[in-house]
């Protein structure tokens, strides 16, 4: 699997996701600097977490307009899978590849903690390895993770099965108490129409070894590898 990780100024989970990809696939991804317009042909493009451009405008807004994003959008439209994690999810919504927007957390504070997620679908490129777990534990670390979209968009996402993960309690109940940041319908991650693009706030790359607190993120990368090899 040839993966490319896009590095924006102040991306800071680029190394973390590269480690996870290498660990699972045995092959280090290409690290692609945002300033270039060339993007190597890839089996998977990853937009990593961090604070691109300091998130001084809306989170992800400036990165979404950086030169390399034109190539990312082009490849995405031709069917190359794109995974956006945390700031990467914000870049995906800001660039129009995914609908909706990530608002400031309802509690107005940065939140870093382990959360539970429901696996809404186990038949996608990113989730086929989750057949045995319907609830996983992975961490979040964000200030702006409160997913919002208008009623029509939300119903469309729900109807088309495009919600990837929801915040839930340890038993899998997507309750309002488990909704850590005020996201509509507890949404933690969504797919595009073809389930080829995934944007998610939680960090699967941080849960790939027991000593780091768990392996809840590992199947996500394994799923990708199973399909893309």
């Amino acid at each position: 699997m040839k993966a490319s990780v896009i590095v924006f100024p102040a991306s800071n989970c680029d190394r973390d996701v590269a480690v996870a990809l290498k660990e699972v696939s045995g092959r280090a991804p290409a690290m692609v600097w945002h300033g270039g317009v060339d993007l190597p042909s890839s089996d998977l493009i990853v937009l990593p977490g961090g604070f691109s451009y300091g998130d001084y405008l809306r989170s992800g807004a400036l990165a979404a307009r950086s030169p390399v994003m034109r190539a990312v959008i082009e490849q995405a439209k031709s069917g190359v899978p794109v995974l956006g994690i945390c700031n990467g999810f914000q870049v995906l919504t800001e660039s129009g590849l995914l609908p909706g927007v990530l608002l400031r957390n309802a509690g107005l504070k940065f939140i870093c903690k382990d959360v539970h997620l429901t696996i809404e679908r186990d038949d996608t490129l990113y989730s086929s390895d989750y057949k045995d777990n319907k609830v996983i534990k992975v961490p979040v670390a964000h200030h702006d993770g409160n997913y919002f979209a208008d009623d029509n968009t939300i119903s469309q996402l729900e109807d088309e099965g495009r919600v990837a993960f929801r915040y839930c309690d340890r038993y899998g109940n997507a309750s309002s108490e488990a909704n850590i940041n005020g996201s509509r319908n507890n949404i933690a991650g969504i797919y595009d129409e073809k389930a080829c693009i995934l944007g998610m706030m939680p960090h699967p790359e941080r849960m790939i070894a027991p000593e780091l607190g768990g392996i809840g993120g590992l199947p996500l990368f394994r799923s990708i590898l199973d399909t893309l090899h």
Binding site: N12, D16, A20, F110, I111, C112, A141, R206
Partner: peptide, 10 residues
Amino acid sequence: WEQYDHMVMG
């Protein structure tokens, strides 16, 4: 400490 990212860098 939940306001501090304590897991980044993996």
